[in-house]
Design a protein around this nucleic acid. Structure first.
Length: 296
DNA sequence: CTTATTACCTGGCAGC
DNA sequence: TGCTGCCAGGTAATAA
């Protein structure tokens, strides 16, 4: 479900609603969503902590839980970092405790003041984990460290100053894969997914099956600009709801109304009127205008 | 190393 | 009303 604009929207919503609240109890309804440590230890280590800042890295969220009011130790000694990846259908929602617990609710952080932070996931792909502190090296088996490894391996943030047209052109020149596959690779640019890759390629006039190394410097620059503009625009509209996505307050994102090609196959291209096509590229449903996005 | 394919889950929807 | 098959916002493991 969520790509960078959706995850960023959730981050902002959660900061607004539940930052500064203490964790009274962690209720784990489905243990398999806790990647590390075990579910009991996960709950114990977070109980009594206070939710501080929330960071977004690509499509990952990192929630900082600091020392509670009772603790005399410095915050750094007891701080826990919780990493969350929502994958296709995960939701992270701040709501009142009185709200009904819907089907597929897997973890509930019961907070002060009658607030809950709930993890809900229809397709069961997402995971949560506590990041290892500096003093605990990775002794744990690899399958329980996927979130941590994925987070460390992320590529460049597309809305950071380091993401320049020159960098993108230089990187693409060295890759032989299809441009769509390269843009979906989180080790390259962090946070793009199927919706925004299709939209950015349309905006830049580039066919999704082009080889990355075949793009000219001018095309790479157009793509760089399109990625930044679309991501910022989508954040302004609180993300895109197609099927299941809701933001951190349970509301739909409104960017679906602004999409130009994603899931528009069979409809006329908004620029030239040619019928939008759908194909499978990089294993994903891919939408493009065959005229505006020529193969060569 | 790079690139392509598949498995992981549940549920909505179109077509018969 | 069923039933079947396809589709879904992601990515790690596996194969080549």
């Amino acid at each position: 479900m969520p790509e960078l604009p959706e995850v960023e929207t959730i981050r902002r919503n959660l900061l607004d609603k539940v930052k500064g609240l203490e964790v009274r109890r962690v209720e784990i309804l489905s243990p398999k969503f806790i990647e590390h440590p075990g579910p009991e230890e996960f709950a114990v280590r977070l109980t009594g902590k206070v939710l501080g800042d929330i960071e977004r890295h690509g499509k990952y969220l990192v929630l900082r839980f600091g020392a509670g009011a009772g603790g005399g130790e410095p915050a750094s000694a007891t701080e826990e970092l919780v990493v969350v990846h929502l994958k296709m259908a995960g939701r992270l929602i701040a709501c009142r405790r009185s709200e009904p617990v819907v089907k597929h609710t897997h973890v509930i952080f019961h907070l002060d003041g009658g607030w809950d932070l709930r993890y809900i996931d229809l397709r069961h792909f997402g995971r949560l984990a506590i990041l290892a502190g500096g003093e605990s090296p990775v002794v744990t088996p690899a399958p329980s460290r996927r979130l941590e490894k994925g987070l460390k391996a992320l590529g460049i943030e597309p809305l950071s100053p380091e993401f320049t047209a020159e960098w993108l052109a230089g990187y693409l020149a060295r890759r032989g894969g299809r441009i769509k596959a390269v843009l979906l690779d989180q080790h390259v640019v962090a946070g793009l997914g199927n919706i925004y890759v299709d939209e950015a390629l349309f905006e830049a006039g580039i066919h999704p099956e082009r080889r990355a190394s075949s793009l000219s410097a001018a095309e790479a620059a157009a793509l760089h600009q399109a990625i930044k503009v679309i991501l910022r625009h989508a954040i302004d509209f609180r993300g895109t709801t197609i099927l299941t996505y809701v933001d951190g307050e349970g509301r739909r994102g409104e960017f679906a109304a602004k999409l130009k090609v994603y899931r528009k196959h069979g409809q006329p291209c908004p620029r030239c009127g040619t019928t939008i096509e759908r194909a499978i590229v990089a294993g994903r449903g891919t939408h493009f205008c065959p005229r505006c996005q020529a193969r060569r």
